[in-house]
């Protein structure tokens, strides 16, 4: 990433949230949503502009599950492990995905295509077990359907 582009981006963000107390988390949200993670060079720049130590920024990033420090895969798979999904067989879905993609929880596949996350509740317990790939929600998923679902997203590239 070019130094210049980073500066402008951060400048705009800091400008937008300037003067609002407790703005750090909201700024990090915008960075996370834009990049899919919080790159280190942006954190460094942010630390300069907000005049807060880098450690303070990292302390916040690492506390909250939502912020990531490494780039995500092209497609994000979120398997819900809320109580309803757990009871209805979410653990076997996770095993199946791990097997098929050879990937661990919280990690990205070697080809960078899929990132597997286990999340706590997607808030649609009526459809359990649920998994979400990018913004598409799949409800009442059966283990046997996983390969098809993954193939569909894999093909889109």
């Amino acid at each position: 990433m070019e130094e210049k582009a980073v500066s402008i981006e951060i400048k705009n963000l800091v400008e937008k949230w300037k003067g609002k107390e407790g703005n750090l988390i909201m700024i990090l949200h915008e960075i996370q949503n834009h990049h899919g993670y919080v790159p280190r060079d942006i954190s460094l720049k942010l630390s300069e502009m907000l005049d807060v130590p880098l450690a303070r920024i990292y302390e916040v990033i690492t506390f909250y599950n939502y912020f990531k420090l490494s780039p995500p895969g092209k497609h994000r798979i979120s398997v819900c492990m809320g109580t309803a999904c757990y009871l209805k067989g979410a653990p076997s879905l996770i095993e199946e995905i791990k097997d098929l993609l050879d990937v661990e929880e919280g990690k990205t596949t070697k080809d960078g295509l899929f990132h597997l996350d286990v999340v706590r509740c997607l808030g649609c317990c009526g459809l359990s077990p649920v998994l979400m790939i990018d913004d598409k929600v799949y409800g009442k998923v059966k283990k046997a359907e996983i390969a098809d679902i993954l193939a569909k997203h894999g093909k889109e590239g």
Binding site: K20, E21, G22, N23, L24, I25, M26, L28, H29, E59, V60, F63, Y64, N65, Y66, F67, R120
Partner: peptide, 26 residues
């Protein structure tokens, strides 16, 4: 104003929630 949580269950606890709105670890 709206402030966003960032995936920490403990932030439902009042004093942790306040810390989070203040932009700190919850």
């Amino acid at each position: 104003e709206v402030r966003l949580g960032a995936g920490a269950f403990v932030c439902g606890e009042e004093t942790a929630l306040i810390a989070s709105i203040e932009g700190k670890r919850g």
